[in-house]
């Protein structure tokens, strides 16, 4: 393979296909959304082209500020819990025999085929008073009487982590399976207990994978818009719920678009900050 810059048009040819795909499926839709976010809403109708900052202006209120803050906080918490659970899980998974690893991965992939709706309803049943897990705990004598855990913040958090967990495992798997086993053994010969070796060596060596896992889980849970309505109370409705509500039920596409773009900018900024911090730590 040549490494120099391509010169002739023919050498650029292989790039045409991805460029076209990117243009049709990403740049153009995003452009439309960006344009719509500046359009004027027509009450009782749709919208008309114009240039107004009202949609963004409306967003700068205490109410939406709170919703935005809650959404980002919820996703960040879900991302931390998710990676916190998925990382040791994936590490132990890579220590298993190859056949068992494949069985687990197939199982995780099959979980991905469940839709957000099914997962939401399943958890709301599991956490309910009438048919939920608390009945089991009562049966074995751990609790006095069944209680309802859904809707609620914990229920929402559980649902979000459940949805993001398989993705996080699949993202962590390649780098953990490649991790040299001798790293942990070396740490042990130098006096580190297995647990200490895990935290000082495995976590350290897989730092980049952990960072990508956090970002993935964060962005993924930020986009979840059904679960807050199924498992949360109205005060737990996230910005994604608001966007859906505005776009579909209120027919206010310009405001929905403005919120979507604002959300995207904020999450991009947070991701950028995370990467920057990660790099500084790696260098220093």
């Amino acid at each position: 393979m040549r490494t120099g810059k391509p010169r002739s048009l023919a050498e650029h040819a292989p790039l045409i296909y991805p460029a076209l795909m990117l243009l049709v499926f990403f740049v153009i839709p995003f452009g439309i959304m960006l344009a719509v976010s500046f359009f004027q809403r027509v009450q009782g109708g749709f919208y008309e082209p114009s240039f107004t900052l009202d949609n963004y202006g409306r967003f700068l209120s205490a109410f939406f500020g709170n919703v935005l803050g809650f959404s980002l906080g919820l996703s960040a918490l879900a991302a931390v819990i998710c990676v916190g659970l998925a990382f040791p899980f994936t590490y132990l998974l890579t220590r298993l025999a190859r056949r068992r690893q494949i069985a687990w991965l197939v199982f995780l992939l099959s979980v991905l085929s469940l839709s957000e709706v099914i997962v939401g309803f399943a958890w709301s049943t599991l956490l309910s008073r009438s048919a939920g897990i608390s009945n089991l705990l009562v049966a074995v004598g751990l609790m006095a009487e069944p209680v309802s855990w859904s809707p609620g913040f914990a229920a929402l958090l559980i649902g979000m982590c459940y949805l993001a967990f398989p993705y996080t495992v699949l993202l962590l798997y390649p780098s953990l399976v490649r991790l040299d086993r001798e790293l942990v053994e070396a740490a042990m010969t130098m006096g580190a207990s297995p647990l200490r070796a895990f935290f000082t060596v495995v976590v350290g060596a897989a730092r980049n994978a952990i960072l990508s896992g956090l970002i993935l889980a964060f962005v993924f849970t930020l986009g979840i818009y059904l679960l807050p309505q199924l498992l949360g109370r109205p005060q737990h409705w996230t910005i994604s719920v608001m966007i859906t509500d505005q776009t579909i039920y209120q027919s206010n596409l310009p405001f929905g678009a403005a919120m979507a773009i604002f959300l995207m900018l904020v999450s991009l900024a947070l991701i950028g900050l995370t990467l920057l911090l990660g790099r500084q730590k790696a260098a220093g």
């Binding site: 053994e185 740490a187 042990m188 350290g204 060596a205």
Partner: peptide, 20 residues
């Protein structure tokens, strides 16, 4: 256990910690 023995070992892959 290995971590109580106080030996020094050089591995075939060297096993140097890449993040340190």
């Amino acid at each position: 256990p290995a971590h109580m023995r106080g030996f020094g070992m050089v591995f075939q892959s060297l096993a140097l910690f890449p993040h340190l």
